[in-house]
Amino acid sequence: MDPFVVLVLCLSCLLLLSIWRQSSGRGKLPPGPTPLPVIGNILQIDIKDVSKSLTNLSKIYGPVFTLYFGLERMVVLHGYEVVKEALIDLGEEFSGRGHFPLAERANRGFGIVFSNGKRWKEIRRFSLMTLRNFGMGKRSIEDRVQEEARCLVEELRKTKASPCDPTFILGCAPCNVICSIIFQKRFDYKDQQFLNLMEKLNENIRIVSTPWIQICNNFPTIIDYFPGTHNKLLKNLAFMESDILEKVKEHQESMDINNPRDFIDCFLIKMEKEKQNQQSEFTIENLVITAADLLGAGTETTSTTLRYALLLLLKHPEVTAKVQEEIERVIGRNRSPCMQDRGHMPYTDAVVHEVQRYIDLIPTSLPHAVTCDVKFRNYLIPKGTTILTSLTSVLHDNKEFPNPEMFDPRHFLDEGGNFKKSNYFMPFSAGKRICVGEGLARMELFLFLTFILQNFNLKSLIDPKDLDTTPVVNGFASVPPFYQLCFIPV
């Protein structure tokens, strides 16, 4: 058959498939802009700032609406009420993970971030239990974070109060905490193996944040037939998995079943207990991918939040002064901060919360999916439909947070200066898919920041009023603009 005829037939089939998918069930789905064949609503979305586009569309179609990214149908949730109703009140029905062709290629359905069903539930339950087990290797997770915080302070001392970009050092600290939990080992910041790991993690975040990856996920045929950065992403992930597998083999040879040292040991012990169960989800494949998931999810998000926190503290020296006064009063100079201190430091706690609220790190979270046909607000959402959640619409709700575009710790303080919780605080998402490392991340943010401010004054290279804190939105995360500062020993 003539190649031209084959091409026309293929394009015609794709067009018909697109029209059929977009028209099927439209009477039951939430409203939304009319999609174009094949490309859907992509032309109506700013790929570099999806969150802003969703906010604009919500003003037209309401808090629940339908979009098509290519052939992929998505239902968008915008605003606290619908997000709570879906992710919390109907948590089980909305607990699936959205379709990610690239991740599915890399992870093969294993791990904790992109798995679904029984596998996801069992691996998540085990990971939560293990991360909360403060007795691994007779050292609590808090001990590990405190140790890394001391190392971080010593690295900052080496800058000798000269101007520096904190990106690298602030990236090393949370990565080392995860390494300590998974591998029972922290690395020197100049260790070549550690630097290679950091390089792969950072490069992957840069790649994932590009519009090209959005295109690959919406048109998965590209993955096999086109060159691009997605190939580098898959190569980096394969490198990390190979490295983790080597460490798993080392653990198998040296493990003491009665004295687990780290996450890998705990997983291997669980595998041993379930070795007679042919349906067990505790396999080497799941261990390797879960460890890679924890490394990827637990490094860049925390380091970016820390980097943004220091920029905001530079911009608002009056806030920094209040935090340091609270540190001096509650902790002093002669001991290290600990998590028990947080309950006695409402202002510092409010500042950490406000940093996370203000920066809105992951504006749309990772997409969910419905696990069955769901009736939601008089609409029928078919099983498997991807759910896109606007966390921006919750964290920047102007009824809950007056002047949401302003950095103001009073958003989390009552009139008496006591810490005030808010149900709208969802930087880790909400419901059954809430970030498994939430507790660890909150511990790291509090301890790293208090250790830094206990030991250093922060000095800006320019007038604080002239510092730009506008986030650089890159399609996946909101990151701070480049800046330098000086760490002046107190």
Rank of each mutant, 00 (worst) to 15 (best):
V5S: 14
L7Q: 04
L9F: 11
S12L: 13
I19V: 11
Q22F: 09
S23R: 14
S23I: 09
R26T: 10
P30Q: 01
P30R: 01
P33L: 00
D46L: 03
K48E: 10
K52F: 05
S53V: 03
T55K: 13
Y61T: 01
V64Y: 02
E72L: 00
L90E: 07
H99A: 11
G109R: 09
S115A: 15
G117C: 06
G117H: 08
F126Q: 02
N133Q: 12
G135T: 15
M136K: 15
G137F: 11
I141M: 09
L152T: 03
V153Q: 03
L156I: 13
C164Y: 08
F168D: 13
I169K: 03
N176Q: 03
I178C: 02
F187R: 08
Y189M: 06
Y189S: 06
N202W: 11
C216M: 12
I222K: 04
F226T: 08
D243C: 15
I244H: 01
K247P: 02
V248M: 05
Q252Y: 10
K273T: 13
K275H: 10
I284K: 08
I284C: 09
L287D: 00
T290W: 05
L294P: 01
S303L: 05
T305A: 06
L311F: 09
L312K: 01
L314F: 05
E318D: 14
V319W: 10
T320N: 08
I327P: 00
R329N: 07
P337C: 05
C338M: 12
G343I: 10
Q356V: 08
Y358P: 00
I359L: 07
D360W: 01
L366N: 02
V374R: 02
T385V: 04
T386A: 08
T392G: 07
N398S: 14
P409C: 04
D414I: 05
G416R: 15
N418M: 12
N423L: 14
P427W: 01
S429W: 01
G431H: 02
E438T: 07
E444S: 05
L445G: 04
L447S: 05
L447G: 05
L467A: 05
V472A: 12
A477L: 09
V479E: 15
P481L: 06
C486G: 07
